[in-house]
Nucleic acid binder design. Structure first.
Lengths: 149, 149
DNA sequence: CTCCAATTTAGAATTATTCTAATTCCACTT
DNA sequence: AAGTGGAATTAGAATAATTCTAAATTGGAG
């Protein structure tokens, strides 16, 4: 309504701007700087500290834009009703603990090979591959040994 | 309030029943018989055709029960705000089309090996592994060739 | 400067999920 | 056959997540 200040990081020239606007950059930075995997709601709150007038719609739109552009990834889990978002940066995978719900990053080297195999099987043109391990995290394993159930 | 008819498939003996009740079985069958990946809402509608008095809570509870028991898997995607559910049956993976959003099943043989590697890296005790390929599905590839972008 | 299309905003509307209290169910006792 | 106790279900309200709408703002192009 009043402030939508600052440049838009113009890149395009023409008129179909479609660029990394200020708000989108803030959303991206929030995601990149967080060590956790945030929900859209948490991203909204964090972005608001910098752009107090940013709206839900803009956060969701930015998230869509960033997802389509490959900057972030959306990961949906049973962990409560909300999607979480994750920087794409260096490719990596996730492990989800079935006891405590913790979501941890890890890297697996042999995924290039895997990508080709999966593309062949699915007949898709592959863009990326992502893998989720479910199991019991080290902490919960320790807890189990301490008090077996 | 009136009908909660039929047996509960008793298995347990004691009193901690925790079994495949009628409603849970219906929910499971809905998922198994569907060729698509349904949302909780869709499952609720389908289950209601058989158990008209089933409630949202029961569907969500059943889903949780079946998930914990390894009967179904919850898959969350950008495909709109709701999780989708999928029979676990034969292990398989998913491919998500970035153009049309279609979600397709496929199988990859080399996942046993992968499971071990992932468990090693993440230090989790592995229960299962799941892999999602994102890319362009055969139909969209064909459409692209017809009218390039 | 004016126009234009993309973008953002505020907030309402819609959907999805969880919660609550009351009820029903059934394996087990008595 | 009636009683007990705890798991499960129900109806519907409450809460949370996501999408929508109309109006306003933006910045480059003309």
């Amino acid at each position: 309504m009043t402030t939508n200040s600052g440049d838009r990081g113009g890149v395009k020239g023409g008129d179909a701007r479609q660029t990394l606007t200020r708000q989108r950059r803030v959303v991206l930075r929030v995601i990149e700087e967080s060590r956790e995997h945030l929900t859209a709601g948490e991203i909204y709150e964090a972005a608001r500290r910098e752009l107090p007038r940013i709206s839900h719609a803009t956060v969701y739109n930015s998230l869509k834009f960033l997802k389509d552009g490959g900057f972030v990834r959306e990961i949906g889990f049973g962990s409560g009703g909300a999607s979480r978002f994750d920087r794409t940066g260096a490719r990596h995978d996730h492990a989800l603990c079935t006891r405590c719900g913790r979501l941890v990053d890890f890297e697996l080297p042999e995924t290039a090979e895997l990508l080709r195999a999966a593309a062949r099987r699915s007949r898709f043109r592959a863009e990326s591959i992502h893998l989720t391990l479910t199991g019991v995290c080290p902490d919960c394993r320790a807890a189990e040994r301490a008090a077996p159930g």
